[in-house]
């Protein structure tokens, strides 16, 4: 039997998480291939619709990674992202997909190991939750390369 391999979308801020991912790579740190990163100019670019769309397009889990609180390049983008992730959790609960499938993380560009740790953490969480209710029946459709980002 094939073990469930989740599809996780990570919306990563260019100024922190995206660089942290680079660093993790240069440090040769392993993290699960189930995480697909989408670069964002700021975590404040995230809105609830983008998160919902990722699920509609086949994601089993989504997380947003922004700068440490107080360190946002655009001052308040990561605080806004946090609120929007909160809104998305509520909607996902409402529609029966489950708010625990989406999360917000904060890290800095120098936190390569933390980036890998977050990826592991989310991978484990979604693996334990199983496939998104939308993916339970049919074999999961391939995830579009850049879901929702225009």
């Amino acid at each position: 039997m094939n073990e469930f391999q989740p599809k996780i979308v990570a919306f990563c801020c260019y100024f922190c998480a995206y660089s942290a991912a680079d660093l993790a790579g240069s440090m040769r740190l392993q993290y699960p291939p189930t995480v697909r990163m989408i670069e964002q100019p700021c975590s404040g670019r995230i809105d609830i619709q983008l998160i919902l769309q990722a699920f509609e397009d086949g994601a089993d889990g989504v997380y947003v990674a922004g700068c440490l609180e107080g360190d946002c390049h655009f001052l308040k983008g990561n605080f806004r992202a946090k609120l929007r992730v909160g809104q998305a959790k509520k909607v996902l609960d409402d529609v029966g997909i489950g708010g625990e499938r989406v999360e917000m993380y904060n890290l800095s560009g120098s936190m390569g190991p933390r980036f890998a740790e977050v990826a592991h953490e989310m991978h484990e969480r979604i693996k334990n939750l199983g496939p998104s209710p939308l993916n339970k029946t049919a074999a999961s459709a391939p995830l579009p390369a850049a879901a929702g980002s225009e």
Binding site: L52, E56, G96, I97, P133
Partner: peptide, 17 residues
Amino acid sequence: EKEVGVLATSLRLLRKQ
């Protein structure tokens, strides 16, 4: 417009299940 989008997606997500 934004709330229209979210409601539409939410309804689709629910009914797809």
